[in-house]
Design a protein around this nucleic acid. Sequence first.
DNA 1: TCATCAATACGGATCGTCTCGTTTCGTTCG
DNA 2: CGAACGAAACGAGACGATCCGTATTGATGA
Lengths: 199, 199
Amino acid sequence: MSHEKGPDHSRRKERSRQAILAAARALVAEEAYEKVTVEAIAARAGVGKQTIYRRWPSKSAVVFAALLALSEGADGQSVALPDTGDLEADLKLVMRATAEEFADPSFDRLIRALNTEIANDAALAAEYREKLARPLDEAKKARLRSAQEAGQLDPDADLDLALDMLYAPLFQRWLHRSGPLTTAYADSLVDATLRAFGP
Amino acid sequence: MSHEKGPDHSRRKERSRQAILAAARALVAEEAYEKVTVEAIAARAGVGKQTIYRRWPSKSAVVFAALLALSEGADGQSVALPDTGDLEADLKLVMRATAEEFADPSFDRLIRALNTEIANDAALAAEYREKLARPLDEAKKARLRSAQEAGQLDPDADLDLALDMLYAPLFQRWLHRSGPLTTAYADSLVDATLRAFGP
DNA sequence: TCATCAATACGGATCGTCTCGTTTCGTTCG
DNA sequence: CGAACGAAACGAGACGATCCGTATTGATGA
């Protein structure tokens, strides 16, 4: 399987690129984002600073690319939520899993770093939505649409709104640390959302 | 008796304090938070840098204090939501007003700065919840409780959860710029919340 | 008088640019 | 066919700039 057009030094480029992204991921996972420096990423990757600045315009862009590479490496195709036919059970499963993800310190630091950047950079926010958030949202919406077709949701329900009401409270509770991300809380969100958008 | 600060210099202190907070507010409102420096705040306030560091440990703390002073200056007692007896109308009024606030560029930058800080500083987040978020949440909850007692909400409804589902989606849409904060969206959130927690 | 202040110098950290000499790898030519 | 070549990319790190947080100093005002 050959790439589009084999440029001259693509292998070196790719190797250093991967090293940089891995180093960025590791550093952001193990300490606060503001403490991570470009020089530290370069050192950890065994790479010159200029090699980083040659590819990305800022630390934000590097870290974002590192996160992006994670989700791209995962599969390469669209994710899909479980669909057992039992909407409530499926949603609770996913919500609980999401809550658990947020509880992992490495993941916590990573996502906080990402949110710090996208809150203050509209361009990065757009890229985030396009490449990370939307595929996930589409997967969730697909599950809701399936339920809608099965008559488990109001045929006129606004699925985007339902998604917002399902996930935004969990996200905000995590972001503001306004309460524990318990199983009970995740379940309550599912219950309330189903009451609001049920048939 | 140890050295104690007499009331002698309290007026000077207060004057410079106000100047610092006003300068911080102005600067954060007019450019991105990361671009605001302590030196710029000091210069704008006509104050030495040390006078700032004498009172606050970091830029975050200064900016946070500036925001806090805003809400304290407002009244000094608890806020209250309108209560005409029509829960849906009252909530839509408040949600629309909130959406409009977010649309103001100065307010936008201010709140983004605040969220950047509290997302990465647990201590600041706690202070934010205690001094800014909770009073507002209590006012909102009071309005919901009033409706609950009037039989307009399920007597067993979890009012905290209802609040989360009402406001978190609006907040997240603003923070991630994932869509316009329209009147229609604000209204939809109220409608859906009332369906979920209605009697 | 004397605590507080504005102003400013300072060392440390990090940024992003720039310049070295080196490594890699496809191409060329013996 | 295989060794030498040259351009692209590289690792390393010096550099000036900016900002941080601390320390110093002379002026100010209660």
